[in-house]
Amino acid sequence: ALNRGDKVRIKRTESYWYGDVGTVASVEKSGILYPVIVRFDRVNYNGFSGSASGVNTNNFAENELELVQAAA
């Protein structure tokens, strides 16, 4: 299972961040479909780089994520 702070690569092909590595911000335990919230260094097309207006978190299912580096 994934944990907060883990570095993960995104495998959801239609995602803006496909192939990117993000950090797990939190994992919901309530049984929702996309329980893993991942935070990225770059914002998506809703904002400009360096601006706070873009979105830099997204929810994924565990099977859409590949663990790159476990949290220390």
Rank of each mutant, 00 (worst) to 15 (best):
E14S: 10
K7L: 10
V21Y: 04
A52P: 10
S15N: 03
G47D: 15
N3C: 14
E14G: 09
G47V: 05
Q69E: 13
T13A: 11
N44S: 04
G54E: 05
N59Y: 08
E62L: 09
E64C: 07
V8R: 00
W17V: 01
R39F: 11
G47W: 04
R42T: 14
E64S: 00
R39S: 08
Y34F: 14
G22A: 02
I10D: 03
G54W: 05
S49A: 12
V68C: 11
E64D: 07
R42F: 04
N56D: 12
R12H: 07
R12V: 06
W17G: 00
Y18V: 04
S15D: 11
V68F: 04
G31H: 12
S26I: 07
L2G: 02
Y18K: 01
Q69N: 11
Y45E: 15
G31Y: 10
L2H: 04
L67M: 06
I32Q: 12
V21K: 02
R12Q: 07
K7A: 06
T13F: 11
V24N: 00
V43K: 06
V27S: 03
E64A: 02
G22E: 02
K11Y: 03
Y16D: 04
R42D: 15
R39K: 10
A1L: 10
Q69I: 10
S51I: 09
T57H: 10
Y34M: 10
A61G: 10
V36A: 00
A52S: 11
T23M: 08
A71M: 11
V27D: 03
N58L: 05
N3S: 11
N58V: 07
Y16G: 02
D6F: 01
L2T: 03
N46T: 07
G50F: 04
R12D: 09
L67A: 02
V24L: 01
I32V: 11
V68T: 04
S49I: 13
V43R: 03
V36E: 00
F40P: 01
V38G: 00
G22H: 01
P35Y: 12
L33T: 11
P35D: 07
V36T: 00
P35R: 05
W17P: 01
V68R: 03
Y34N: 10
V55K: 04
A25E: 14
K7V: 08
Y45G: 15
R4Q: 14
G5H: 04
A25V: 15
T13D: 05
R39N: 06
S15W: 01
N44V: 07
G31Q: 13
N58R: 05
V27Y: 11
R4D: 09
E28D: 12
Y18E: 03
A72E: 14
T23K: 05
Q69D: 10
K11Q: 08
F60D: 02
N56W: 05
R4H: 11
L2Q: 01
N46I: 05
K29I: 13
I10P: 02
E28A: 10
E62A: 10
A52C: 15
Y45P: 15
Y18P: 01
E64G: 01
S49C: 15
A61I: 05
V36I: 13
E62I: 11
K29V: 12
A1W: 09
L2N: 02
A61N: 10
G19S: 04
D20E: 08
G47C: 15
L33H: 10
A72W: 08
G50I: 04
G54I: 05
G54V: 04
L67G: 01
I37F: 08
F40T: 02
A1C: 14
S51M: 09
E64K: 00
D41A: 06
A1I: 11
V55A: 06
I37P: 00
Y16M: 03
V36K: 00
E62F: 12
D6V: 05
V68P: 01
V24C: 07
V8G: 01
T57A: 09
Y45D: 15
V55H: 07
F40G: 02
V68N: 02
S30Y: 08
Y16E: 06
S51N: 13
I32P: 08
F60Y: 09
S53D: 13
F40E: 01
V21C: 10
D6I: 03
F48N: 15
L65C: 07
S30I: 10
L2S: 04
E62S: 08
D41F: 07
L2R: 02
F60N: 01
G47Y: 04
I32D: 12
D6P: 01
N56R: 07
R42V: 13
L67V: 09
N44C: 15
F48S: 14
F40A: 02
E64L: 15
E62M: 10
L65V: 14
R39C: 15
D6Q: 02
G31E: 13
S15M: 01
A61E: 07
D6C: 11
G54L: 14
Q69L: 06
A52Q: 09
E28R: 08
Y18F: 08
D20Y: 08
D41W: 04
A70E: 10
G22N: 01
I32W: 08
F40V: 03
N3G: 13
L67N: 02
L65M: 03
Y34G: 06
V38L: 00
V43N: 07
Y16Q: 04
E62G: 06
E62Y: 10
V55R: 04
G5C: 13
F40I: 04
A70H: 11
S30H: 07
V55T: 12
V43T: 10
P35L: 13
L2A: 10
G19Q: 10
A25W: 09
S26Y: 12
R42P: 13
V55G: 04
A1G: 12
A25L: 14
T23E: 14
S53T: 14
A52V: 10
D41H: 11
V68Q: 03
R4N: 10
N44F: 13
G22F: 03
G47N: 14
L65G: 00
V27E: 01
E64H: 02
N63H: 11
D20H: 05
A70Q: 09
T57M: 09
W17Y: 05
N63G: 07
A25P: 05
S26W: 09
S49E: 15
L33P: 14
G5N: 06
G5M: 01
I37K: 11
S30A: 12
R4G: 06
K7C: 14
S51V: 09
G19N: 10
Y34R: 13
I10Y: 00
N56C: 15
S49R: 01
S26F: 13
N46W: 05
W17D: 15
Y16N: 03
E64I: 02
R39M: 11
G19I: 05
D6G: 01
G54K: 05
L2V: 08
L33G: 13
G5D: 05
L65R: 05
N56A: 06
N3D: 09
D6R: 00
G31S: 13
R9D: 02
N3W: 04
G50W: 05
K29W: 10
L65K: 00
G47I: 05
S51Y: 04
Q69G: 08
G19V: 06
N3Q: 13
L65I: 04
N58M: 13
N63E: 11
T57N: 05
D41E: 14
F40D: 03
N3M: 12
N59V: 06
G19A: 06
N46Q: 10
F60T: 02
V43Q: 05
K7Q: 12
N58E: 15
S53G: 12
G31A: 13
A70S: 12
G54H: 05
I32F: 08
P35N: 09
V24H: 01
A70C: 14
Y18Q: 03
T57E: 13
I37D: 03
I32T: 10
E64T: 02
N46D: 15
L67T: 03
N59G: 14
N58S: 15
S15R: 01
A72S: 13
V43E: 13
N3E: 13
V68G: 00
E66K: 03
L67S: 02
P35E: 13
